[in-house]
């Protein structure tokens, strides 16, 4: 359940941002969580609701963008898209994939009043 630590980070970042912008209530939080980031989205939502109680983010909707994994396939010599770390290259079936994207984990923006 490292999602609880992540949820606490989200609340911290959202509160810091909201206070720096007038201290209003936050109605929506937009996250970017890559499909290779090792995060269980349902658990993150659950933890966010718990971690945000009594904060400026309490009750805020959580929008989550989930970009696909990107990797460089060594045999193909080109960039490919895949969704899991145990997936093979969709073109050649090789596992010689070097991950280049899809591990991002960040707060993109907040909507506040």
């Amino acid at each position: 359940m490292h999602e609880m630590s992540l949820a606490e980070s989200i609340v911290q970042i959202v509160e810091d941002t909201a206070r720096a912008n007038g201290g209003g209530r936050v109605s929506r939080v937009l996250l970017e969580v890559g499909r290779l980031a090792g995060v269980e989205i349902e658990a993150l939502r659950f933890c966010f609701d718990a971690a945000s109680r009594t904060s400026l983010a309490e009750g805020a909707a959580l929008d989550i963008e989930e970009p696909d994994g990107q990797a460089w396939c060594l045999p193909c010599g080109e960039s490919v898209t895949f969704s899991g770390l145990t997936d093979a290259c969709p073109h050649c079936g090789s596992y010689q994939l070097q991950v280049t994207g899809g591990t991002q984990l960040k707060v993109r923006e907040i909507e506040m009043y």
Partner: peptide
């Protein structure tokens, strides 16, 4: 989720509209 629902399910009518603040911070 419906963005129309504000903080804690309450919003005030006729008050300031929501604004977007860019954050771009790593968790």
């Amino acid at each position: 989720p419906e963005p129309a629902i504000g903080a804690a399910g309450v919003h005030a009518h006729g008050t300031t509209a929501a604004r977007i603040v860019q954050v771009e911070r790593d968790l």
